[in-house]
Simulated assay, not measured.
Amino acid sequence: MKDVVLEKAMHKCILKPLKGHVEAMLKHFHVADGSWKQLKENLQLVRQRNPQELGVFAPTPDFVDVEKIKVKFMTMQKMYSPEKKVMLLLRVCKLIYTVMENNSGRMYGADDFLPVLTYVIAQCDMLELDTEVEYMMELLDPSLLHGEGGYYLTSTYGALSLIKNFQEEQAARLLSSEARDTLRQWHKRRTTNRTVPSVDDFQVRGQRPGWAPLLPHGPRGSGPPTPNYLRVAFQEVNSGCTGKTLLVRPYVTTEDVCQLCAEKFKVADPQEYSLFLFVDETWQQLAEDTYPQKIKAELHSRPQPHVFHFVYKRIKKDPYGIIFQNGEEDLSAS
């Protein structure tokens, strides 16, 4: 508690009076190196494209929602506290996720979210977001980079990098490599704990014309790569507004995910809850020793696309004996 109070006091005493100077220096730096000119030109190019051309295959915020998001970004600019900025960024990204999920009736992962975030940032047309992200990445307490805050901050950096590299096909490959290196260097410099999100935790599903492969794909021939994030709903499939995006490594078990869900969803009696897979209109309670990311990867690798959801919900007292319909195998046994 003392550390929190001390940090807030330091922000007020040091960051508040220096905020304008820091922002002016960042702007001067980016104008001098030409990156703002490139970003300004590419923002205009991206705004002229329809969402599908940008790799967006999920519902996007309408004009009213984009204006609301732009107002939040403008409010974020006025703040001097990096923590408050990140909290507002978190609210913006959750609003985008809610629009995506409420307008489609399904849940989306990191690979679907990044193109939508890129589209929204382009529609907002705010050069200053570039320096806002840099301000947060450099001044935020490393302990606050855990979980969703770090995830959305890194996502926003990735979205801006995609816009900067838009349609510069030859240069884009070099710049995207540079962006990955920058993120990795930042990650090493600003964190000491590997559970903080890094560039390797993100994945763009499919490369669209004009877009650089900013985020790394899995080894050739390994099948669809699995992002290290798992979107989990609470109680119901369509509870997008209360769903959580969790950092889940490929070999983290369902038991561990349940413990994380109990904490994130503030469940008082976690022994009464479990992680379920909803696919093909069928519910299946996952065994504690299964691996959700491996199940997700297997579903993605099937020839026919499957709409599926991971849901953390209360266990019914009636015994379960659920198997997949249409003779498909029980994924929890894999």
Rank of each mutant, 00 (worst) to 15 (best):
F73E: 07
M74C: 05
I163N: 04
L6K: 15
P216L: 09
V4Q: 09
M79L: 12
L95T: 14
G321A: 15
H11R: 14
L114C: 02
N165C: 15
R184V: 13
M76E: 05
P292E: 03
P61C: 04
P227M: 02
P303T: 13
K37S: 08
K37T: 10
D201A: 01
H28Y: 03
L247C: 10
L90N: 10
L175A: 15
F234Y: 11
V71R: 14
M100S: 02
R49S: 12
H309R: 01
E236L: 11
K37G: 08
K85W: 02
P61Y: 01
N165D: 12
Y251A: 08
C13S: 08
L26G: 01
R205Y: 12
R231Y: 00
P209Y: 08
Q259T: 07
K16W: 01
K94G: 03
E168Q: 15
E132Q: 15
R194S: 09
K264V: 01
A212V: 06
T131C: 09
E83S: 11
T226I: 06
C124F: 01
V279K: 10
E128V: 05
S161V: 04
Y108C: 01
T60H: 00
I14M: 10
Y152W: 12
P225M: 06
L139K: 07
E328W: 06
I295A: 02
L214E: 01
K244H: 09
L144A: 07
K294V: 04
V199A: 09
K244V: 03
D269Y: 05
L45V: 11
P142R: 06
R314D: 05
D181F: 10
P250V: 00
S176Q: 04
K294I: 03
S143R: 12
G34C: 05
Q304M: 14
A179P: 10
V71K: 11
V252H: 03
K68Q: 14
F29V: 10
K313F: 04
E272N: 13
C258S: 13
K78E: 12
L114Y: 03
A171V: 04
Y97A: 00
S104R: 14
D141S: 10
Q77K: 07
F57V: 14
K37I: 06
P82D: 12
D181R: 15
E148I: 10
Y312V: 00
P250M: 03
I163S: 03
E7A: 14
L88V: 11
V46W: 07
Q235D: 13
P197T: 00
L331K: 09
H146D: 08
G55D: 04
L45W: 09
T242L: 05
M136I: 14
A58L: 07
L331T: 13
